[in-house]
Amino acid sequence: MQIFVKGLTGKTTTLEVEPSDTIENVKAKIQDKTGLPPDQQRLIFAGKQLEDGRTLSDYNIQKESTLHIVWR
C-alpha cells in the first residue's frame, strides 16, 4: 500500500509499505529516500508519536494515510 510522509518543509515523500511493517522498517525506507537516519526521525500520526516496535496496523494506518515527520 502507499502512504505519504510529510515533513516540516511541506515536502511529501511517498512510500510503498505493508500494514505489517514495523515503524522501524518504515524509518529505514524513509532513510533510503531522504538520507535522514532513523535515529533522527520522529513519526507522528493522529497526534501520536509512533514507536519503533509497533506496526502500521497497530496504529490503524491505512493506504494513503499521511504521517508527519519531525527531525530530532
Rank of each mutant, 00 (worst) to 15 (best):
I30G: 01
V17S: 02
T55N: 05
T13L: 15
H68D: 10
K48C: 07
V70C: 08
A28G: 09
I61H: 00
E16T: 12
E64R: 08
R42A: 10
L50V: 04
K11A: 10
L43W: 03
I30Q: 01
L8P: 14
N25K: 14
F45H: 07
G53L: 08
Q31N: 07
G47L: 03
T55L: 09
T12S: 09
V26E: 00
D39S: 13
D58H: 10
E18W: 13
D52M: 05
Q62W: 07
K6D: 05
V5C: 03
A28R: 15
T13H: 15
L67G: 01
K48M: 14
L43A: 02
L67N: 00
L67I: 15
E51P: 02
E24I: 10
I30H: 02
V5D: 01
T9I: 10
H68R: 08
N60I: 03
W71V: 14
G47M: 04
T9P: 12
R72K: 13
E51K: 09
S57W: 08
Q2M: 13
G53E: 11
R54S: 08
Y59W: 02
K29R: 08
K6P: 02
I3H: 01
F4C: 04
H68V: 11
P19A: 08
S57K: 11
D21N: 06
Q2Y: 13
T14R: 10
S20W: 13
Q31E: 08
E24K: 11
V26F: 02
G7S: 12
G47D: 06
K29L: 09
G47K: 05
E18V: 13
M1P: 01
D52R: 04
V17C: 06
T55H: 06
I3Y: 01
F4E: 03
K11E: 13
W71Q: 12
M1S: 02
D32N: 13
G47E: 05
R72W: 13
K11T: 11
V17N: 00
E64Q: 09
L15I: 12
K6N: 06
T12R: 11
T14G: 05
G53W: 13
I3V: 05
K27S: 02
P38F: 11
I30M: 08
L36H: 08
L56Y: 00
K27A: 02
L8Y: 13
Q41G: 05
A46K: 15
S20N: 13
D52K: 05
Q62I: 13
A46N: 15
T13V: 15
L8D: 06
H68A: 06
K48I: 14
R72Y: 14
K63G: 13
F45S: 03
K48A: 09
W71T: 12
T12H: 08
L43S: 00
V26I: 10
G47Q: 04
G47T: 04
T22D: 03
